[in-house]
Design a binder for these strands. Sequence first.
DNA 1: CGACGAATTGAACCTATTCAAAGGGTGTGG
DNA 2: CCACACCCTTTGAATAGGTTCAATTCGTCG
Lengths: 249, 249
Amino acid sequence: MTDKRKTPLETEEITAEMCSADVRLQALGQVPFFSMLKSAELQEINKLFKEQGFEPNETVYFEGDPADHLYVVAAGKVKLMRHTRSGKDVLLDLLEPGEYFGSLSPLPDETYTETAQARTTVCSLRIGKETFRSILANRPGIALRVLEITAGRLQAAHERVRQLSAFPVEHRIAFTLLTLAEKFGQPQKGRLLIQTPLSRDDLAEMTGTTTESASRTISQLQKAGLIETGRQWVAITDRERLEAILEEE
Amino acid sequence: MTDKRKTPLETEEITAEMCSADVRLQALGQVPFFSMLKSAELQEINKLFKEQGFEPNETVYFEGDPADHLYVVAAGKVKLMRHTRSGKDVLLDLLEPGEYFGSLSPLPDETYTETAQARTTVCSLRIGKETFRSILANRPGIALRVLEITAGRLQAAHERVRQLSAFPVEHRIAFTLLTLAEKFGQPQKGRLLIQTPLSRDDLAEMTGTTTESASRTISQLQKAGLIETGRQWVAITDRERLEAILEEE
DNA sequence: CGACGAATTGAACCTATTCAAAGGGTGTGG
DNA sequence: CCACACCCTTTGAATAGGTTCAATTCGTCG
């Protein structure tokens, strides 16, 4: 019995029981800053997290809400974004299992500076920011890992500022596709599929352009044979020529 | 004897002896993540830093150089930027005394992802990244402060991504001026002077536009009476109307 | 005063946006 | 299982905002 759908994306099979005890432990063990912990320690820390599930498109928190939790993605994909008055949203990041989001700062009276939204069915684990801070205060090794990850995100954000400041749409789209492929890429039929739902709209929000411009650029790249694409998906077929676009000035 | 120059900027009086022992201690005490230390501890840490002076426009390090030090600005102003092949530079940050830059990550074989350049005569203090890491590993309080500051910079970078993605030049210039005023603003003659050399070129590099567009926008804001400006300086005269530009969609 | 770098201004050009309309894949309900 | 409705995507044409190139003016410092 063949699937009639044309999308090459694997549907994310996540059920209601996704937040079961062992899945939780596995998810936490995947978190870069917990991965060095011994099993016993991990179990201790596991107890401090509460699980919370979300349906696709459900919002974890809104920009401006009081910020008092830190979240870890256990299963599914989470989108971080900022809004604008005109309704044009900006997509800041797409998170995989093992990545954190939410509030790191222990200061009171803070609010989230971005909106977090489930893009698939999601299981998240969350912890109060004070509790998390005390974990960091007691285990410098973890604090240093968290710092490294945050510093890495800062570099990525700076690179994005550079892209937006200095390069035309085609260049930015190419860059974004290559970056996404590094994170979500899955070899398939001699091409590199970006294994996450990805609309022209998403791409536009990631590159600071409009849906129409993203669509035109994507079509053009497909005609040139650099990528294959369809509704909600993109696969890279000629990585080298795509990278060559980044070399143009 | 009156000054014939028209610039309202104070010239930064920094001499060759700027890195004297007491200036060093004072500078380190100003660093947010050292400010909670007792005097004795601060003296210990002070010994781990080496001083290094720079002339205006001298480069501290280049993008791509091996990254093995962390720097603290003791005196003067430092500019962080990224280059592009086409020669269009992107200004990432302007640092004041007490701010850090350079490498946080202890990983070997890393390179700086931005170029650091002295904008004035500068005295900097630097420390090997492994040494700095051991300070953090032993004093969780410091590590947490560094993490907070880095997280704050990440928020700022995200906001800049939003600005570049969603708003026109005039809006971005207004935003940048207000942000600069918050950091470098100095009340003077009923206006708020941005106390740092600031050319149209700098402004263009900060807002992702060209020198000419920055110039046109600045002229226009001046004609409208929101700012006063001259060669290398800007002062805000009507903050409210400048902020009102940010409300437009 | 003279020279150099910074800032301004104009005009032509171009990229990307906007508005509008049509085409196609997916999943739902009959 | 088919058909319809919805949303995603594509494409076109007009427009606008910004860039580019070029020339001039202005301020600052030697």
